[in-house]
Each structure stands twice: as structure tokens, then as C-alpha cells.
């Protein structure tokens, strides 16, 4: 029922080591965050769409799950369009808001970059099961067990909070304290949820220790996190997309680094 912690073995790449998927998105994200030009972002976006569809993410791209990105990107663009630094010809203005050649360009670039950065991140993240991620972090990246499992437990608790929230709403109604405005109600219920979450965390820690967690011996991992040919391929594709986007942008002379 929870958003976090759901297993989605039906998606492509679900069985690839999550560390590889994270690593694959990294070069492009860095390149795009540090630059300002529209060409690199546009090339990256086109390449991403091609790769994602080729791997079988077509249906996911069209599904409701990605709606937030398709909505958020144009919204950031719109704010840039209205409030971005004006330059060139001004087409329309009202108070502080102004649409100019400059702001149109900035808006377009912004939409492209937001999409190019968010799309692969979100799509790949949807294929990651938290447990697999923990396996990868602990075995592939050799992060400390306690840290990784602590984070995993926190994630699992966070998933359960969705159900807790629903039950709390019912319980507060039953206890006669759900009167008042929606904002007040929300704040109070959020506080109750926080209290409950802290308690749950304590109990879960006890349960984990009751099963030998945090003992003195070496811990093993039942699932071996592989980092094989497929993983390297995924990383390579990520690097290739980034390299190509930068190369095209440099070639057409639009490459433009933040500090230049």
C-alpha cells in the first residue's frame, strides 16, 4: 500500500544493481547542473527518451506516475518566463513580470534541463527496491552495515507512515478531536504522527536487536549484490549520453559553463 518500499519487479532494469543505476545518472546530472546552454539539455533529453524507450520504459513514460515531472517542469519554466532576467525585446510586461527575448530563452532552457535531469532519475528510481539499494550500498560501495540498515529501517517506517496517517485520521475523529480548521487539524495530526513514528522507531530497533542486530560478529548478506557486465553497461550508457550531449553542444558552439 505504501509508496516507498513497494517492490516493482515488473519494470525493466529492476534487477540491475541500484548502485549502477545511480552511477549512470550522475555524469549527466553534473554536466547539466554546471552548464546553462539549451543544446546540451535538448540533446540529452532526446537521447534519454530514445534509450528509455529502447529499454522498455515507454509505458511508464506515458503513465500517471510521471505526471508530476510533466507538470513541474513547465511550471518552473513559466516562472522563468515571467520573472527571468529581461533582455532583448520586451513583448509583454505587468508589474514585476515581463516576457522578453531573454526570459523566453531562459524559460526554454530551464524546462529542458529540469526534464533532462529529473526524467532519468525518477524513472530509474522507480525501478529501485530499497532492499536492493541497501544491498548495493553495503556490498558494492562498502558503506557500514549499521548505517545502511538503519537507513533502510527508516525507509520502511516511512512507508508504513502512509497507513498510520490514515488510521490516525480515523482515530482522531473517533476521539472527538478532529474538529477545527483543516490547517490546524493537519498540523496536530502531523505532530501525532511524529510521536507515533518515534515510538515505532524505538520498537523496531528493539525488534532488530532481538534478532541479533548490532552484535559483535561480522554480518553477512543473504543476497549478493552483483556488479557485472550489465551494470557496467548501464553506467557506460549513462556516461555516453552525457558525453554526447556535451560534445554536440561544444561542436555547435553553445557550450556555456556556469562560471564562464
Amino acid at each position: 500500500m505504501s509508496v516507498i518500499g513497494a517492490v516493482r519487479p515488473d519494470l525493466p532494469l529492476a534487477h540491475v544493481n541500484p548502485v549502477a543505476k545511480l552511477a549512470a545518472t550522475l555524469p549527466l546530472a553534473i554536466a547539466l547542473v554546471l552548464t546553462l546552454d539549451p543544446v546540451s539539455a535538448a540533446v540529452a533529453l532526446v537521447l534519454e527518451l530514445l534509450v528509455l524507450v529502447a529499454v522498455g520504459f515507454g509505458p511508464l513514460l506515458r503513465s500517471k506516475r510521471l505526471l508530476p515531472i510533466w507538470i513541474a517542469a513547465p511550471l518552473t519554466g513559466l516562472s522563468m518566463l515571467l520573472y527571468g532576467e529581461a533582455s532583448g525585446e520586451v513583448h509583454w510586461s505587468f508589474g514585476l513580470a515581463a516576457i522578453s527575448d531573454g526570459s523566453i530563452a531562459i524559460a526554454l532552457t530551464t524546462v529542458l534541463r529540469v526534464l533532462a535531469i529529473a526524467l532519468p532519475g525518477v524513472v530509474l528510481f522507480l525501478t529501485i527496491d530499497p532492499t536492493d539499494l541497501a544491498d548495493g550500498l553495503a556490498q558494492t560501495l562498502r558503506l557500514p552495515d549499521r548505517f545502511v540498515l538503519g537507513a533502510l529501517a527508516a525507509l520502511r517506517l516511512a512507508g508504513g507512515l502512509v497507513d498510520d496517517w490514515r488510521m490516525l485520521a480515523l482515530a482522531r475523529r473517533a476521539r472527538g478531536v478532529a474538529d477545527g480548521g483543516p490547517v490546524v487539524r493537519f498540523v496536530r495530526q502531523a505532530f501525532a504522527l511524529l510521536v507515533l513514528a518515534v515510538r515505532r522507531g524505538g520498537t523496531l530497533a528493539t525488534a532488530m536487536e532481538g534478532r541479533g542486530f548490532g552484535g559483535s560478529g561480522e554480518r553477512t548478506w543473504a543476497r549478493t549484490a552483483h556488479f557485472g557486465r550489465v551494470e557496467w553497461l548501464v553506467v557506460a550508457v549513462g556516461c555516453a549520453v552525457a558525453a554526447l550531449a556535451v560534445a554536440v553542444s561544444v561542436a555547435v558552439g553553445s557550450w556555456n559553463v556556469i562560471w564562464a
Binding site: D129, T131, R156, A207, R211, E218, T224
Partner: peptide, 24 residues
């Protein structure tokens, strides 16, 4: 309900054995 550690059934059963260092 308070002692489910992992999100998948099999992993949850394995959790304690892992902590004790049982060979994978």
C-alpha cells in the same frame, strides 16, 4: 506488526541469520 524489518517476506526471515554471520 511492529517487528517487520524488511519489506519482502524472504528478506525479513533472513535478517536475523544475516546478523549472526551465517554464510549466504
Amino acid at each position: 506488526g511492529a517487528q517487520l524489518v524488511m519489506s519482502r517476506l524472504g528478506d525479513d526471515v533472513a535478517f536475523g541469520a544475516e546478523n549472526l554471520g551465517v554464510p549466504p
